[in-house]
């Protein structure tokens, strides 16, 4: 087990290098550079030359590749091109904790509500409860988060004025309600579906039938025997969504005005802010990979038949 974890952690290195390489070259292959004018800002050619020089973009490509990598290994992710005077490290330190908190809160809501609801639907298969819950789940899945967030803001912010229309004042504030819920809705619905589906599989398994035949009460069966096994696919999917929620909350962050990393990453892509794109991509990559490792380890925890050597 320890060897396995160590091997997986070592495997992060080539994966990260691969991602670094792909991002590095893809960024530069994309049309438009950081100082091509955007809608409002033509840039004087001499100034553009100065900027290119200042940020070492006139160096040969291999040198840029090596230099940034060397910097990154020393924990220096470079300066932001768009936000003059700010470094990627500062930007990440500012925004990542917000994204992380928001993501974790949303995931806690999604799993905390999704798993019990899914199990409930499975146990009550083909009843009104089941159909009603799955119908709601479908609505949850089929509504894009930017629509959910906008509608919630209009209803609860503009009309009812229960919560501010945008902004961020920490996780434990009224401002956080809409982003957390909007972000949680989709994974909640998906987790509920997977939980139901996987619980159905388990309920039909022989050992559960045996238990039932022995006269154990349904709830006891679910709790004692079925839940643990039914959680395996749910864990996979929850891990996937956790990464998604932490990294991909761009839409919700944009609409609700939460200053998170997802929103920042998209801004940086449209500004061709290479160091910010690279720095945040690498950070998100590490998170995703660590989450994946945890998911894989949790299989072993939940299913003794899976062994990692």
């Amino acid at each position: 087990m320890r060897g396995y974890v160590l091997r997986r952690l070592l495997a992060l290195i080539p994966t990260l290098l691969l991602i670094y390489t792909i991002v590095f070259f893809l960024m530069r292959a994309t049309p438009g550079g950081p100082w091509d004018e955007t809608g409002t800002r033509p840039v004087f050619p001499e100034v553009k030359a100065n900027l290119m020089k200042k940020y070492h973009l006139t160096d040969p490509l291999w040198k840029q590749y090596v230099d940034y990598l060397a910097g990154a290994l020393h924990g220096d992710l470079g300066p932001s091109y768009r936000q003059r005077g700010r470094t990627v490290n500062e930007i990440i330190a500012d925004f990542f904790p917000i994204s992380l908190r928001l993501g974790l809160a949303a995931m806690a809501v999604a799993i905390g509500c999704g798993v019990p609801l899914g199990f409930l639907a499975a146990v009550r298969q083909d009843t009104r409860v089941d159909r009603g819950l799955m119908f709601l789940a479908v609505i949850g899945i089929s509504t894009p988060s930017f629509v959910v967030a906008t509608v919630l803001i209009v209803v609860f912010g503009v009309y009812l004025r229960w919560v501010p229309t945008s902004g961020w004042a920490g996780l434990l504030s009224r401002q956080a309600l809409i982003p957390v819920f909007a972000l949680a809705l989709w994974p909640l619905a998906a987790v509920a579906r997977y939980a139901r589906s996987s619980m159905l599989d388990v309920i039909r398994a022989d050992y559960v039938r045996t238990a039932k035949a022995k006269g154990l009460r349904e709830l006891a069966i679910v709790v004692r025997h079925a839940a643990k096994n039914a959680l395996i696919p749910v864990v996979t999917i929850a891990g996937v969504y956790l990464a998604f929620v932490v990294t991909g909350s761009f839409y919700v962050e944009s609409v609700t005005g939460v200053p998170g990393l997802g929103r920042y990453l998209v801004l940086s892509i449209s500004a061709r802010d290479y160091p910010v794109i690279m720095g945040t991509t690498l950070l998100l990559a590490i998170i995703v990979m660590v989450v994946n490792l945890i998911v894989d380890l949790s299989y072993a925890l939940l299913d003794p038949r899976i062994r990692y050597e």
Partner: peptide, 11 residues
């Protein structure tokens, strides 16, 4: 892992 760790939107 590598592709997955890639933010979808960027790609």
């Amino acid at each position: 892992d590598a592709l997955y760790a890639f933010p979808d939107l960027l790609l």
